[in-house]
């Protein structure tokens, strides 16, 4: 019988080898996940040098804490959680994070009390980069928990379960947080960019 092509080392093996002092194994782990972390963190800052710093910091933290990694969660999830926290810490240190990071009790909590304000898509004339710039500015206004859940869902296209694992919360919490986050995003968008508010038009024509 043919021997299968040797599979790439499993995360668990690379972790064990790293803990045993194999620098190359850790390098392989970094190589495996660096792309994902760069993609994730670039949603928090548009400055490439900062993305690099944050990702590097996250890997170093992961290395220091590697012996505490419990194999119940996937290494990828664990690593991304560290990266998110590193990014949020970074934003706080730079004074670029809203102070309020708890859920806002005043905000509608029941998805059935649906926001009656309509939402419009970005103007077709806007370039992708312009949209990204507007969105980034609006997201910076949102408390951490809302910004993160929007990033994970909308940009990273992660499933609710994965978001729940990453943030250490239930799926129900992800759903309700996402609902609030989207409402907050809409509210902040039309507040910061009234030109995108379809509800302010005289006559309020909605297409």
């Amino acid at each position: 019988m043919y021997q299968m092509q040797p599979a790439p080392s499993k995360d668990a093996d690379l972790i064990a080898e790293t803990l045993a002092g194999q620098q190359l194994s850790f390098q392989l782990l970094v190589e495996r996940y660096q792309g994902r972390l760069f993609g994730l963190i670039r949603n928090y800052t548009r400055n490439t040098a900062e993305v690099e710093d944050i990702v590097q910091d996250a890997f170093l933290k992961a290395y220091v804490k590697l012996d505490t990694f419990q194999h119940q969660a996937s290494f990828s999830t664990w690593l991304q959680r560290i990266a998110i926290n590193t990014a949020l810490d970074f934003m706080k240190r730079c004074g670029r994070s809203p102070v309020q990071s708890v859920e806002d009790p005043e905000l509608i909590t029941d998805p059935r009390s649906f926001d009656r304000r309509r939402m419009m898509a970005p103007d077709a004339r806007l370039q992708r980069e312009e949209i990204a710039e507007v969105t980034h500015r609006v997201l910076e206004e949102l408390p951490d928990i809302f910004r993160t859940v929007i990033i994970l869902r909308e940009f990273e296209d992660r499933a609710y379960q994965e978001i729940a694992d990453m943030l250490g919360v239930s799926i129900g919490t992800v759903e309700s947080r996402l609902f609030r986050a989207r409402a907050r995003f809409k509210e902040a968008l039309v507040r910061m960019y009234p030109e995108f508010d379809p509800n302010t038009d005289e006559g309020g024509s909605i297409h």
Partner: peptide, 30 residues
């Protein structure tokens, strides 16, 4: 509305890690 909202989140362009990043990080860690 939710569909419209999703247009505000265009897929970001990929950002590739610089060459030698992994080796540098592993060296720094050790």
């Amino acid at each position: 509305d939710l569909g419209n909202l999703s247009h505000w989140f265009p897929t970001p362009e990929t950002l590739a890690p610089p060459a030698g990043f992994a080796a540098r990080v592993a060296r720094a860690a050790f």
